[in-house]
Design a protein around this nucleic acid. Structure first.
Length: 487
RNA sequence: GGCCCCAUCGUCUAGUGGCCUAGGACGUAGCCCUCUCAAGGCUAAAACACGGGUUCGAAUCCCGUUGGGGCCA
């Protein structure tokens, strides 16, 4: 990799769809490389397909990038505004004999194709319009004869040293004279991309594997334009669980769907980075800074990777656990508000309490949804007893009630809220005095207080709820149990 | 169909000729911890697609086969 030329990379999505997982990873790799090298990350919107491109999709893409924390240094540039440059380049290609007008009609081309198929050969354009003399071509164009502009592919081979795949080459005869400008004057993708990358002084083109077959054409254009092509790195695709290209069939298409599902941007970025890349040591849970520091293009794998949601969940849990209570509170706050559990003002008033609460529930949660469900019972209001919890700890209502009677007696007498060890010692002695196993008391309390079978330690739970709520919930639980045995 | 890419546990990967009786992670199973569940710790099952070469030696290099994927048609 050249140390002389500054690193300039780009992400060039076409706004015909959302920012999907594959696109996000391509963007991420470019971004990581730019940040790692102190280079420049350019954003370019390839909106030349006017019919399918929408402003809505542009907003969606920018929204997705923003969520992931992928910021750009230049742009967004819009390819649609660069038609003039594309046509200039095409003109130069024609002038210098590297491209020529082709007057073949759709029918003629179809005939050529069918003939090739009949001969069991692969179809490439015959190149017969190449023979038309320039003056004749000019005359026909002037008279309004419709034509496309085709690139005159030379004989030989086009090769490059792909950072990911190593030496890669295509025989030029398999490429065929390809169209660079349509008959309506619109520049074709390969021309537009090449001219844009050239004008934007892109040093490394990092993009999906699906562009490999476009690369020789682009290299040919670079050479015809008299410049050295950039470095290419073709990143393998991301596959669904069935190993086909990841698509809507496999669930979420837009990366922002993962935001809604309760994943942390940092965890998602970490996960994406590990899909097709590894730091070379055994690290897996990595911060954004660590990723930037460790990222190099030559460590990208050549093999496509399956998107594994379970690993994403685990990673998210890891990131959640590593965050401080305050940081978790920061991201979790809107989730609690949106769930209708509590108002934002109240959360801000009880900021310290909420941070402590998040500290308690974060290790038990993998997503922000889990966090909400874990945190819900800590807010005032009636508790719903979860069937699983009843089944597991209140199977015998009489025994549960007996345990709760002990719990009530203990809680009423407890005056050292906050001293966890002392609280436990006391509960154990009260329970022992009543001949009820302490574990039984704690488990029954868990259901009474949270309605769930999973919660933080019972004493931490009590402290977080406070004596009043605990008292209320214990008696409510006994009433409920009594009614249940009666009915 | 043509061209191109790829091939290590179910999944993500380490591995660039000897350090590999193939390492880590997710997931799975078990154990420890324990008031529940996580987290944490320990353990187990689990892979070099196949066939030929090259080499004293191959997961690593070459060829072929098979399989998967992409692009074009």
């Amino acid at each position: 990799m050249s140390l002389v030329t500054p690193v300039r990379v780009r992400f060039a999505p076409s706004p015909t769809g959302f920012l999907h997982v594959g696109g996000a990873r391509t963007a991420l790799f470019n971004w990581l490389w730019a940040r790692h090298t102190g280079g420049t990350f350019v954003l370019r919107i390839e909106d030349t397909d006017a019919e399918r491109s929408t402003d809505e999709m542009i907003r969606e893409i920018l929204d997705g990038l923003e969520w992931l924390g992928i910021d750009w240094d230049e742009g967004p540039y819009f390819q649609s505004e660069r038609g003039e440059r594309h046509r200039e380049a095409a003109g130069r290609l024609v002038e210098e004999g590297n491209a020529y007008p082709c007057f073949c009609t759709v029918e003629e081309l179809a005939a050529e194709r069918e003939a090739a198929i009949a001969r069991k050969e692969s179809y490439v354009y015959s190149g017969r319009c190449r023979g038309i003399a320039p003056f004749e071509a000019a005359e026909r164009r002037a008279s309004g004869d419709p034509c496309t502009i085709r690139f005159a592919v030379p004989a030989g081979e086009t090769a490059w040293d792909d950072v990911v795949h190593g030496p890669t080459s295509f025989e030029n005869r398999t490429i065929g004279d390809f169209i660079v400008v349509r008959s309506d004057g619109a520049p074709i993708y390969n021309l537009a991309v090449t001219v844009d990358d050239l004008d934007m002084r892109i040093s490394h083109v990092v993009r999906g594997d699906d562009h490999i077959s476009n690369t020789p054409k682009q290299i040919l254009i670079y050479h015809a334009l008299g410049v050295e092509p950039p470095v290419f790195a073709h990143v393998p695709l991301i596959l669904g669980p069935d190993k086909s290209k990841l698509s809507k069939r496999h669930g979420a298409v837009a990366v922002t769907a993962y935001r809604e599902q309760g994943y942390l941007a940092d965890a998602f970025v970490n996960f994406l980075a590990l899909l097709g890349w590894s730091p070379g040591d055994d690290r897996e849970v990595m911060t954004r800074g660590e990723l930037v520091e460790a990222f190099t293009l030559d460590r990208i794998t050549g093999k496509s990777a399956v998107f594994d949601v379970e690993k994403l969940e685990w990673l998210n849990g890891q990131h959640l656990t590593q965050l401080s209570g305050a940081d978790v509170a920061e991201v979790a706050r809107p989730w609690f508000v949106r769930a209708g559990i509590v108002g934002l003002e109240e959360l801000e008033e009880r900021a310290d309490w909420f941070e402590d609460l998040m500290g308690l529930v974060k290790t038990r949660s993998r997503t922000l949804h889990d966090l909400v469900e874990q945190g819900r019972p800590f807010f005032p209001g009636p508790v719903e007893y979860h069937p699983d919890a009843i089944e597991k700890f209140w199977k015998d209502p009489a025994a549960a009630d007996q345990a709760l009677a002990v719990a009530e007696e203990y809680a009423a007498a407890e005056d050292h809220w906050g001293a966890l060890e002392a609280m436990e010692t006391r509960l154990r002695s009260v329970a022992e005095g009543r001949g009820v196993p302490a574990g039984k008391v704690m488990q029954s309390m868990r259901v009474a207080l949270t309605g769930q079978r999973v919660s933080p330690g019972i004493f931490e739970t009590m402290v977080a709820m406070g004596p009043d709520v605990v008292g209320e919930r214990l008696s409510a639980a006994r009433t409920w149990l009594a009614r249940r045995s009666a009915g």
